[in-house]
């Protein structure tokens, strides 16, 4: 049985008199301990899809979500707010794109991680110990000291590590990483990817990676879903899609990856008229 099942998901945003369908009826599954990437350009609907999994999108009428999302057999859409809070963070945890704005600037990193633990394990006594442990797990040096640091005292890479520590603190079954490396520079990107990879192997947790970067998915994911303008255009094993893309959009996206050493080859922008 799959851990996450999405059926005919439609997401529509409405402003005064216009409405935009960001996601146009997509369906996919994600198995226990499976790692899947959703790839697509900006505006393809991948981030809102990720947000809709725990109903993090603004409430109607601004945003309307239809279709069925079931996690471990329970329907997310019909859940009460209270039950949903038990899923958020505990079962499905998130990492966001911009670590500097995703952490609250006026609380210490330790406080924010401890908050996640206290929300889901109120009986836990050694919260601080757990926080230090989770910071150590994501490779933060001197975790005892860093616990009391404020986000602005950490570099971007460290902030993203702290975000990952916060997401992992409650041992979720599914980690949704929404462009976790986009805001970081290349060397830090590699570190974060390696970190996610090792944590996933150790924890045996499922991963849904949202990205526009084909370069990082082959390292992390087994399966890939390609989204374009709110639809899934291609889906398959990572290797097949990368080496043998069937849809022209996928081909165009893969063509956009800059390659080291490829002299004289111009980076090609996507020509939408051909699609």
């Amino acid at each position: 049985m799959s851990l996450l099942e999405v059926k005919n998901l439609k997401i529509t945003f409405s402003a005064r008199d216009t409405s935009t369908e960001a996601v146009k009826g997509i369906s996919f599954r994600l198995g226990e301990n499976e790692s899947v990437a959703i790839v697509g350009e900006s505006g393809s609907g991948k981030t809102v899809t990720a947000m809709s999994l725990t109903r993090l999108l603004p409430p109607p009428p601004a945003c309307k979500v239809s279709g069925e999302i079931s996690f471990d057999g329970t329907n997310i859409g019909s859940m009460s707010e209270k039950d949903l809070r038990k899923i958020r963070g505990r079962q499905i945890a998130y990492i966001f794109q911009e670590p500097s704005t995703s952490l609250n600037p006026v609380f210490t990193v330790g406080y924010q991680i401890a908050e996640a633990i206290r929300l889901h394990f109120p009986e836990e006594k050694n919260v601080r110990e757990k926080v230090v442990e989770s910071l150590r797990e994501v490779g933060i040096l001197e975790p005892q000291k860093r616990c009391d640091s404020y986000p602005y005292e950490l570099s971007g890479g460290m902030q993203q590590r702290a975000m990952i520590a916060m997401a992992l603190a409650c041992k979720p079954r599914l980690l949704v990483a929404d462009e976790p490396t986009t805001a970081l520079d290349v060397t830090i990107q590699k570190q974060i990817i390696d970190l996610l990879k090792s944590v996933r192997q150790k924890r045996r947790m499922s991963l849904l990676l949202i990205t526009h970067n084909f370069g990082i998915i082959s390292e992390l994911c087994e399966r890939v879903i390609v989204m374009f303008r709110g639809n899934i255009v291609e889906e398959g094993a990572c290797r097949d899609v990368l080496h043998n893309p069937r849809h022209p959009y996928t081909r165009a996206l893969i063509n956009c990856i800059p390659r080291l050493g490829a002299r004289g080859r111009k980076l090609e922008p996507i020509d939408y008229d051909k699609l």
Binding site: R88, A93, Y94, V106, E115, L119
Partner: peptide
């Protein structure tokens, strides 16, 4: 509309907690 508000909801904080703890201090 700040990112940390979304983070707070994503980790399971209630609306009251998000407003009184996270938003109020900012």
């Amino acid at each position: 509309s700040r990112g940390y508000v979304r983070t707070a909801y994503a980790k399971g904080a209630s609306r009251g907690r998000v407003y009184l703890v996270h938003i109020a201090r900012n």
